[in-house]
Design a protein around this nucleic acid. Sequence first.
RNA 1: GGGCGUUUAGCUCAGUUGGUUAGAGCGCUUCCUUCACACGGAAGAGGCCACAGGUUCGAGUCCUGUAACGCCCACCA
Length: 960
Amino acid sequence: MNLPANYERAAAEAKWQKFWDDSKIYKFDPASKAEPFTIDTPPPTVSGKLHIGHVFSYTQTEIIARYQRQLGKNVLYPFGFDDNGLPTEILTEKETGKKGAEMPREEFVQLCEATSAKYRTQFRDLWMSLGFSCAWDNVYSTISKSSQRISQRSFLDLLKKDKVDYRSMPTLWCVKCQTSFAQAEVDDVNKGTIFNYLNFSTTDGTLIPIATTRPELLPACVAMFIHPENAKYKHLIGQKAVVPLFGHQVTILADEKADPEKGTGIVMCCTFGDVTDIEWFRKHKLPNRLAFTRDGKMNELAGEFAGLGIEEARKVIIAKLLEAGLIFRQEEISAEKRVVNTHERCGTPVEYLDTKQWFIKVVDAKEDLIKQGEKVNWFPSYMGKRYRDWVDNLGWDWAISRQRYFGVPIPVWYAPDGTIIPADDSQLPVNPLVDKPLDCKGYDPATLIPEKDVLDTWATSSITPELNWRWGEKDEMPQLRPMSMRPQAHDIIRTWAFYTIVKSWFHHGDIPWKDAVISGHVIKKEVKVETQKVEGQAFERKSKISKSKDGDKFSPLRLIEEFGADAIRYWATSGTLGSDIAFDEDEIEGSSKLLTKLWNSAKFAAGFLQGFDPKAGRPKLEAVDLWALTKFDAVIKNYHAAFAKHEFFPARNGLEQFFWSDYCDNYIELVKDRLYSTDPADAERARAAKWTLYFLTLGQLKLFAPYLPHITEEIYQGLFAELEGDKSIHISKFPVVESSLVSADAAKAGELLLEVVTLVRGYKSRNNYSMKLAIDKLTLEADEDVLTDLKLVEKDVLGICKANALIFSVKKTEFIRISGTMPAGIGNVTVLAENPTTAPSSIDNVVALTDNHIIAPAFTEKTERIALAIEMDKAALLRNEVVSELKPLINEAKKAFNLKAKDACKVLYVQAPVDLLKVLETEPGQLEAAARSEKVVFNAEGKTYLPLASRPGMGVAVEN
RNA sequence: GGGCGUUUAGCUCAGUUGGUUAGAGCGCUUCCUUCACACGGAAGAGGCCACAGGUUCGAGUCCUGUAACGCCCACCA
């Protein structure tokens, strides 16, 4: 039972990762009777680079998985990759330089699969190097045959239930990707533009001014609108207007939505400039007059401008209008003021086209969907409101068909008369372009038109719960529905969370999971930037991490390399659930300090636990032991209470606090005296300390295990595995403190002890004494009940304060404080006197009052329940004083041997007069320590001593 | 314009159901080589808890309002 001096991080992490993988301790057992805990892990989009943000959010879930597993639950922690659909296509096109539209579909699909496989491996390697406890032999991919089958099954179920619609209507369209897309995929981009004021005219020549940012839509103009109450222009309503440059005529109509305050008060309506245009198109039954093609080129309606791209056409048409004098005013609109909607996958400005698409009918189901959202427990709870807001404001049905290639095919055919012929479940996954329906419903198979569109990636990722419990498959596990938990980031509540709830509601009439646990993002922290002071800005704001600006400063691989998985994991849990975290490398460094501390404290315990068997019976525990155990009990309870709400941070925080401050700084220090004692009378007390040490070390390791899986496993396997019998700490049970060991009295005594210790430490620190400097006599004054408690820890007080004698005295009087500097450079001293009349008037008198000792008491400022008097050993003080005076001299002497102050030397020679010699000889160790020498020789002959000016007859020499 | 969130030490953040004297880590100051650890320890400096009202014996915590910042949505002629 021993640990090496240093923790070999890299080796240990690799070793245990392999061990866990080989021993399958994370495998979900479908046959198990244990309570299941199932996680609907976000399948990362295979879209290129790994990001520190991935590490942040996935680690949080990972820790919850480990916690649940240690509770004894049967944990399903699957992993998947969202690799179907447009994101992969865009990535593939970027990597290969080839366009999907320019090659046979099958060929492009193969390229996409290769790209996806490459990035899947990257992700997997990263997660493994972070020690993620997913069952790696059971990973899904959304483009796999099985996922396609379940996805198509989902579509067919919606079709059967009449929840999908195939209809022609204006849709959001991307001219670059040449596909329709959903409302949730719209992004806002700030972009400046020019506001053009130009004149239409009535047939009799009256000018009609309008304002537009998109003059290239003039050929698509189908009407003009004026508010019915618009005093200035309402007389024009009903007349015809001539479109400038293009010459066709449109009707001037009235509509309340035409705001008299905006622009000129008259607005042109085109096919389609924006959502209002679409609304008018439907309401007023306007013609469809699309002036550009699906790939964003002006068409024949644009006349001489046909063939130009949309943006190019805008410039050319503006130039032409200016030339013709038709534009009478132009205004620049700054980027801050104008927002352009774009397709989030590629950044191209949104267009609207009338196309035939598949929609899931969500708008009609809004109320039900809000109710479903209320059934889910959102963590933190306000995230539920975001969901509600989104659903409440839905204006469009969910468009799920995409005119793309690398996706799940929509499993239908169309008969010549438009009848929809669905695939049969038994033939899934199906590709209508290749396959034929099993049941052609009496139509000639040769006449059937296959659907060539594919489903949007969200249509498949919205059924990750179904992919996990294998809906409709041979290994289906419907008992796992609803799943326990969905972890995800807050930005995709409107997409992923919403879509998943939609699917679950339509398919099963239920929620997909009980808890939605929402994480934040990683951002950059505010830093002082001296060079920016010129602009009056001393700080760089908190901001999103940008790949181009920050390079690989935030690369997960680099960070793991530098700090190790455990330190990164620990950092990743330092944020509050749901809120963004500022990236701070110093904090990761702080985490790795914790690892060192954990290692060293375990090493300390190991030294005393050689041959110790806790099963041999529990010794009678001391008050200090009970104090520590009582505190630990509270830590455990707090830990579980926090995890019940998936709050990994408070759980960890309380534990760390206890570990570092209560356990390391105090408990270990308090029991050293017992553990190192060679007095047989202390044997039982030492056994008590060992028992407690064993329990606390193991218990804390178990609580740290979800966060720091590698180092805790290393220590567990080194010290405890044999005695405890669990194959891995990660499948061991959490510690429980027996209720008989939880003692309020002991807790109180422990706190009082710490109060005394703090006073003594403060005294020594203020006087620049070493903590090990002995106290001759320590007098404690307090009320009787306090003293009763303190007597429980009498021996501990003596030990940790290095006091030779301890006297308890019932508090009688208030003290008067007198402060001053002692003669002979002994330091600042505070003296307390019992009453003003007998109080010494100066420090000199104090020395006179005491014979061998200097009285330098202090009392607690905090509670005033304990006062203490410290009588230092005069010899010890003198020695301390002399040694510190000699120190600079020793360092001077070392220089002759080219030694630095911190370097060790062989012999320290000290010349001293008889009285000082006596004092120094009692504890030569202090001089040895000061000089870092192997030994000290006093008053040797024939040495050249460096003389100490302040003390005649004293000097030092060094030999190396 | 609407909704949500945030505002506590120089920085990053905790602060349980309102309860004595508001905490931690990093950074800063002084000291201490002590037999687990100097990647350590001790002691300290540093806060009008954004602001203004209110409820209460008592408010960092509850209510109202204001401001700044962030996110989401809407607006886009």
